[in-house]
Write a protein that binds this DNA or RNA. Sequence first.
DNA 1: ACAAAAGTGTTATCGCTACACCCATGT
DNA 2: ACATGGGTGTAGCGATAACACTTTTGT
Lengths: 250, 250
Amino acid sequence: MEEKKENSLEKVLGHQFSAFYKISIDKFFQFALSVDCVILGYNEESLNLLVIERGAQPHIGKMALPGDLVYPSEDMDLAAERVLNELTDLEDVNMTQFHSYGQVDRHPIGRVITVGYYSLISVDQFEPLASSWADNVSWLNVKKLPKLAFDHNEIVQEALRSLKERVRLQPIGFELLPKEFTLGQMQNLYETVLEVKFDKANFRKKILGMGLLEETGKLQSDVPHRPGKLYSFNKKAYESLLQTGYTFEL
Amino acid sequence: MEEKKENSLEKVLGHQFSAFYKISIDKFFQFALSVDCVILGYNEESLNLLVIERGAQPHIGKMALPGDLVYPSEDMDLAAERVLNELTDLEDVNMTQFHSYGQVDRHPIGRVITVGYYSLISVDQFEPLASSWADNVSWLNVKKLPKLAFDHNEIVQEALRSLKERVRLQPIGFELLPKEFTLGQMQNLYETVLEVKFDKANFRKKILGMGLLEETGKLQSDVPHRPGKLYSFNKKAYESLLQTGYTFEL
DNA sequence: ACAAAAGTGTTATCGCTACACCCATGT
DNA sequence: ACATGGGTGTAGCGATAACACTTTTGT
């Protein structure tokens, strides 16, 4: 069986090492695969990261990204969605793969490759679910993260970098905002994510000039200042702009 | 042993599945990891992909990306460099990870996750090496690729998309050009990679305005038109620009 | 009255586009 | 002479930055 597998390796892969070094094919099938999810939520003030508290060694008690091992018969994109679904009951959240981490010693139990995904959700849509492996779920301001388990700090930083790049080209801000929002909220979101300041007047002109927002006719209420108009994202307009070759830019 | 390993899984990972479903930890360590390298070279006319011809099943005779399985004790970034070194004798080539592919049925021999890397090299620096698993190495114009082995077409397309994004923010064009080059060559490169056309005068003003190029004082020779000035990339100037927070933009 | 954020208009400047034009070389 | 790409100047347009100002709410 061992021998047969090795032969088929040679036939199938045609790689040199098998024929020359007579290393068993099984030696190469020793990896485990996991997904780690950088779930970001925005709450009017700050960008926040969803973390769980680890209840086991190693790194017991530390905060960690929600993640799990991938089953050998499971697609990794689906595994990432599964992790999110076990935590939140959100459906159809877009999980974006951004980087993979394969350092030899990153996990004590063996060689575990992890694939990083991020997703953006509105905090007001978030409804945590009971999950036996995630007793303590919390949001942490990404600007004030403690030391997380494993190499999760590094993973988060890379996700944020990747997010910033993407924000400039796609109107993903909408995924982080409630269905109806004011331009002030939107500006605040962009300023938070990109870590810059915009001039109010100019920001409004630019955003409204894109024609991607619809007035809902409603106004904010219960705010200690002049209430702002509530807008919603016009997805149809965005898609037709994409057709005609358009790039969203800030 | 089996039992012991399972216990340690519970302690170490603290994940639910082990405790509840009593699935052996070994079930999760069945993955193999490979790297596939999208090596791009530019030759004055077109952007080209380095491919090898497969000498074994499956996909025998088809062109494929150079790639290999990663050893269980090998870092995957280093594995990617190893693949390139076995092919070319180039040193210090920057390999950039861009995406990972983990579809369950993507490889007939088992669950093989592959991590895609790309690198950019000047064709004039390229010196192919003898490699028993890569008998036939060739450059193919990326605009005229045949059907490649496995999911390699998809991988190449993603690499090119990723490259385009990066080109706009970093002056990676220099990695693809000879040490000394004319502005015309540079413009041609950018037009090829980004698949756009630039106005000559404006391109020059923009590029020269960045202060990243140095005149070498030399001129082109043996060209059937007015010889162009040869420039070289001023890496120091680029690095000090990075320090002061600058973004290269086209 | 005041704070605080919504919302608008103006101006000056910068960058980019488009286009026209000249230059040097090989055939 | 001509084709080919190198190399430069400029006029006009449009986007953007900077800033001042008015409006509407809650306290």
